[in-house]
Amino acid sequence: MDKFLQLTLTGLTNGAIFALVALGFVLIYKASDVINFAQGDFLLVGAYLTFGLISQVGLPWSVGMLIAIVVAVLLGIVVERLVLRPLIGEPIISVIMVTIGLSSLLRSVVIWIWGTMGAQFPSFLPSQPINVFGAVVPADRFIAIGLAAVLLVVFTLFFRYSREGIAMRATADDQQAALSMGISVQKIFAIAWSIAAVTAVLAGIIVANITELSFFAVSSIGLHVFPVVILGGLDSIPGAIIGGLIIGLLESYVGGYTPSALALRTVFPFIVLIIILMIKPYGLFGEERIERV
């Protein structure tokens, strides 16, 4: 029983981190219909940049984290200016290909500056163990869950009630019609990419805090974004959260109850992904294509 509880809690926290990354992905998809292959790489940027600012430059952690968030916002704006704006009106697939290029670019920059070697991350989040019904979980893992929950509520309200949020969904639905409303598509894209980058950077910082700073560990979390969003539905915010938690739990249980030599843990999310695609092609909560009959 203890093992089960332990695995559940580990799964939920990992899932919350996946959900954070997926949230940004969904946001970009909702605003622009673009599948952002670079989403996982924002994680790397966040983790390494924060590490660099705190451990190498010697800034206090609060300042380092703040700068990392500001850089994420700027990154979103720069991507819109240099990458997306020239491609307005071009087929979506061109933009998607560009995000693959962006992904390589971000990775290369991180490797160029910091290399791929692991490093000790200056863990500033409190990590004292908390005892939950016999299972022991470090406090920083709860921060991940809490942050995911808060962002879920904030984003849901934002998209349902705020004018900017509605404008974002309108832009995703029909860019030209959105333009005719006087909605600035450029501004909407910049906002979406900035928020997406910020959530990913936050997730990257939390990951590095919980485990350690390792290029491969962080980028493998980025890879999970695809099974998560396809499971939850590409354009669903609750889907990103629930998809994240499901994948996190599955991975944790499979890893805990099967011999680790089989390495089922890493394959399993993708097996689930294929099954989901066969049964529900739009994911659990995805928007179906509307066809009037």
Binding site: I166, D174, A177, S180, M181
Partner: peptide
């Protein structure tokens, strides 16, 4: 100046009221 485009072009996934709010964007 506001153009109502050919073919209606409502925002399909938004509800009626959200469409109206989108119209008031400016």
């Amino acid at each position: 100046i506001f153009q109502v485009m050919e073919g209606r072009r409502v925002f399909e996934h938004l509800d009626v009221e959200q469409n109206l709010i989108a119209g008031s964007y400016t």
